[in-house]
Design a protein around this nucleic acid. Sequence first.
RNA 1: GCGAGCGUAGCCAAGAGGCCUAAGGCGCCUGUCUGUGGCACAGGAGAUCACGGGUUCGAAUCCCGUCGCUCGCCCCA
Length: 418
Amino acid sequence: MFQAPRGTADLLPEEQKYRRYIESRAVALAQSYGYGRIDSPVFEDAGLFVRSVGEGTDIVEKEMYTFEDRGGDLVTLRPEGTAPVCRAYLEHGMHNLPQPVRMYYFCPVFRYERPQAGRFRQHHQFGVEVLGDPNPAVDAEVIELAWRLMHSLGLTDIRLFVNSIGDKESRPAYVQQLKSYYSERYENLCGDCRNRLDRNPLRLLDCKVLGCRAMGEEAPRSVDHLDPDSLDHWERLKSYLSAMQIPFEVDHRLVRGLDYYSRTVFEIQPEEAGAQSTICGGGRYDGLMEQLGGRPTPGIGFGSGLERLTLNLKRSGVEVPDLPAPSYLVANVGDAARLPALELASRIRQAGAGAILSSGTRALRGQMRQANALGIPYVVILGDDEIGRGEVVIRDMETSTQQTIPTAEFLQSLASDY
RNA sequence: GCGAGCGUAGCCAAGAGGCCUAAGGCGCCUGUCUGUGGCACAGGAGAUCACGGGUUCGAAUCCCGUCGCUCGCCCCA
């Protein structure tokens, strides 16, 4: 027997309501902020991600699904959502559109990792990007959108963390300070952090080991080493968030694992934070477009994992509406009713209503049971008697009442309803 | 890549060397109710006890290996 590959999952019909709920809320919100949907390919030139996400990152080093296609091109299954959107912006000359360009997306994301709670090799993200505006008001807008989305979904026990990690001019000096701070305390570092010291010093800050955490509290803070422009950006962002009454916490240890971030970074986590708990993460990436060969174009965005959102919806007991069942099940009794039942079901659908045709191979009782189990509100009953008289029985399953009416009249009522 | 736990019908599971031709529950099908659902009762289908090897007179049960799943670390949505 075949199984779904490790780290992948089937999203079965009974689970779809969560996905559809999240999608409809997210779309409504994104549209109200003026974002347009973009769908980019599932795979891209491998170089796109190496260039944008960064050589030294875990994603590029060991998590990408990269393969040579039959034509000899090296392609990669999308490991994150931002780079493809930036590529599309450049490829389609979107700098000619009114700036900034606001876009949102839903897409599958692939990373070769060991799966665990809230982590998959294929997962799905909702994300937004705003390209072409350096103003901190845009940072605030994106964060507000993320915050409102969580609330719109019914996730209210959440915390927003923000930080500024400076831009590419001011960061090297800060990183240097951080390195010397930790180097002086090398003896007390955990094994992982000793390795990280050279590779990615920023990551030392969010180590979970107790001793390292304590050191992180005392470590030099990026916000104390911002250049004047970045500092101004940071201060304005905070005042904008306050003005919008969005409760944020400055987390000096918040850095992020992708190289392209600059200045603003942020995350949203549920109150009861577990290991893989971040349900939304993003930040500004002003240098990215240049990295990809475009003219300097500022950008900011976030990604949010649909599987993690679903997990949290269930955990916090949010009531998600059921997807609508068809209004009618056409039950039929006896061979003579088979064809008329098929025709009737077809007519109901043409009139714009939903109908399931019962195969009629079992007793009426069984067909009624099926209608009940499927949550169908009305059963249309068709047997020899009804056909002889040109009538149908319409049974209301909720009230357990039924009426016999001429078929033509029934179809007419549908036409006026839909 | 590293560490831990777990694999018995579609799902949840009892069982801990012979009483297992594997309990029970959910779900599914049928009937009680010859053309009328939910409830109840009765019956039925559905399991190479993850796979391979070993120990033993005898293995779902003990040992070894393999595979798979889950959880944690790393990293991230």
